[in-house]
């Protein structure tokens, strides 16, 4: 996905609803990733062929697979898994949309079609535990798949990171220091209010040598980024302003240097908000996984 710096990321994503996209093109990362290890991403199919069962399945999600910015989050999560030596695998091309955007938009047929096909694949590999890179996938897999025959222990990647920190497997002394930086966490609706996950993302930030600040609207009062409920894939209704601009007001008010996010859709919206306010030089939007990777020098 070729996002340019001017203009809205969401608009580009919207345009891609209609376009056939050249897929072979290699895209340079905007932020230089430090490459201490070569990333090897195992798939469930490979593992199964070798007669192995990974401890956990990493459910990448559509944004994590296709959106250029979100791909960096995906690779960060893989780096973390590889670094701690956790046995994991992805579904690769066997993964398909969980059906979340269809369900929120009211298309229950399409949702359940997707769910049943995915459950077939997951149950085929006898998957027990899943970590997702997206709160929407997390919510759907965890809450809406069980009734349709898909019973898994589902966690979000921020919960995994918290767990790894608690176990002492992730330490922050080896990597980039966040000293003197003001970091604020933007609650993703489907983690926070949707599933009461407020502490895990914050726990991942608390280990940093940075100043953690809360926005005026946080935790259960957190303001949506504007992408949920399939808004990501449509024009917003007529109004005074974009929800993402309203949200970045909160970050500006506390003079945050970094807005930490835990959702690829929030990422797109928050970046649009930062661009709208022309604060690209002052405010960085980073996923908790990316921050963890930086802090650990992975």
């Amino acid at each position: 996905m070729n996002s340019i710096n001017s203009g809205s990321d969401k608009r580009i994503i919207m345009e891609e609803l209609n376009q056939d996209i050249p897929t072979t093109e290699t895209i340079k990362s905007e932020i230089e990733d430090s490459k201490s290890e070569i990333l090897v991403v195992p798939t469930m199919a490979q593992m199964a062929a070798e007669g192995k069962t990974p401890e956990i399945l990493f459910w990448v999600g559509c944004a994590g697979s296709f959106d250029e910015r979100a791909q960096k989050i995906t690779r960060s999560i893989c780096k973390i898994l590889q670094h701690v030596g956790m046995s994991y695998a992805v579904l690769g091309t066997e993964e398909s949309c969980t059906g979340d955007p269809a369900k929120r938009a009211g298309n229950e047929f399409l949702f359940q079609m997707q769910a049943m096909v995915n459950i077939d694949v997951l149950n085929g590999y006898a998957v027990k535990k899943i970590v997702t890179g997206c709160p929407h996938c997390f919510n759907t897999l965890k809450n809406e798949y069980p009734q349709l025959g898909g019973n898994y222990d589902v966690i979000h990647h921020t919960q995994l990171i918290q767990q790894l920190i608690d176990e002492g497997k992730l330490k922050t002394q080896d990597g980039e220091s966040f000293k003197g930086k003001k970091i604020t966490y933007h609650d993703a609706c489907y983690l926070g209010r949707g599933n009461n996950v407020y502490e895990a993302p914050r726990a991942a930030l608390e280990v940093l040598d940075a100043e953690l600040v809360e926005m005026k609207r946080c935790k259960s009062n957190g303001l949506c980024c504007g992408a949920g409920g399939a808004q990501m894939f449509k024009e917003p209704e007529k109004g005074k302003r974009e929800i993402s601009d309203e949200r970045i007001d909160d970050a500006i008010a506390i003079q945050a240097n970094i807005v930490a996010s835990a959702c690829p859709f929030c990422m797109t919206m928050l970046r649009d908000g930062v661009k709208h306010h022309e604060k690209e030089d002052e405010i960085q939007v980073l996923d908790i996984a990316e921050i963890t990777v930086k802090a650990n020098g992975l």
Binding site: E16, I21, S65, F66, T74, V90, G92, C97
Partner: peptide, 27 residues
């Protein structure tokens, strides 16, 4: 359009599902 993409490509965007794993090669 999004529904059509999910139905045909397994993603809300018009990407081929065969390219879903390309992210692993990008770095």
């Amino acid at each position: 359009n999004m529904f059509g993409n999910v139905e045909n490509n397994g993603a809300p965007w018009k990407y081929s599902s065969a390219d879903r794993f390309n992210w692993a090669d990008h770095e």
